[in-house]
Amino acid sequence: MRSLSVTMNVTLDGVVQGLGRPDEDTRGGFRHGGWGTKFQDEVLGREMARRMSRPGDMLFGRRTWEDFIGVWAGRDDGNPFTAHLDAATKYVASTTLGSAGAWQNSILLPGDATKTVAELKAEPGNDLAIVGSAALVRSLHAAGLVDRYTLVIHPLTLGVGARLFEGPAPLTEFKLTRSVATTKGVLIAYYERA
């Protein structure tokens, strides 16, 4: 059985929208895109590279997968993240996508994500990792399918934007297994289902 890990960049007030670029996710009139870039440092890079060094498959919601294509697919820059993403099997949970042929090694999981991901987790194979895809994470968390979280907590509040959990989340306990503070005040917290 595969495990499912989620890595999510989040502000102190729970916002997960538009970490990397001003135009990354402007839904709902969000104007604070790119809020995470000034917090990059060697410690954060090393921790994220550590996570990417393990073999595993990726799981995306449609919107995040399409955004990653624009940023990562077809790059030839020697970046270890590029190599990892290109080589990984990328599962795309979507009810609207017709095909996952736009990026090598991508497989479409059509229909209800909680059902298709539960089936995927039950199969033998590499563990699964989600980076971003907050709406998908919310539904998988509610279905009890998330085994681990890595929360990359940035020291700022935005007041507006999509949050990791909007509305009530089901009671689920996790235990802190490790934490790392960066030189820029970011806290990387690793949690496993208790």
Rank of each mutant, 00 (worst) to 15 (best):
F39M: 01
L44R: 06
G61P: 09
R51V: 07
G34D: 10
S99M: 05
V117S: 07
P22T: 08
R75D: 07
V146N: 01
T182V: 04
R27Q: 15
G29K: 09
F60K: 06
G45Q: 10
D23H: 08
A142V: 00
V117N: 09
R54N: 03
G36Q: 08
A169N: 05
L97I: 11
L4S: 12
A113C: 08
T82E: 02
T177M: 03
P110D: 05
I188C: 05
V180A: 07
G101F: 00
L171K: 12
A194R: 07
T114V: 13
M52L: 12
P168G: 15
W72C: 14
L97Q: 04
E42L: 05
L176P: 06
Q40L: 15
T64S: 14
A134I: 05
L12E: 00
T157A: 15
V152G: 03
G33K: 15
T95S: 15
V186H: 07
S5T: 09
T96Y: 05
D86A: 14
S99A: 13
G20K: 03
R51K: 04
D25H: 11
V92R: 03
G29Y: 10
V117K: 09
E42Y: 02
G45L: 00
S3E: 09
L85F: 15
L12V: 10
A122G: 15
G33I: 15
D112T: 06
G185R: 00
V186A: 08
A100S: 12
D112Q: 12
T157G: 07
G34E: 13
L136F: 03
R163C: 03
V15D: 10
A129E: 11
A122S: 15
G70E: 12
G33F: 13
G125S: 12
E119V: 09
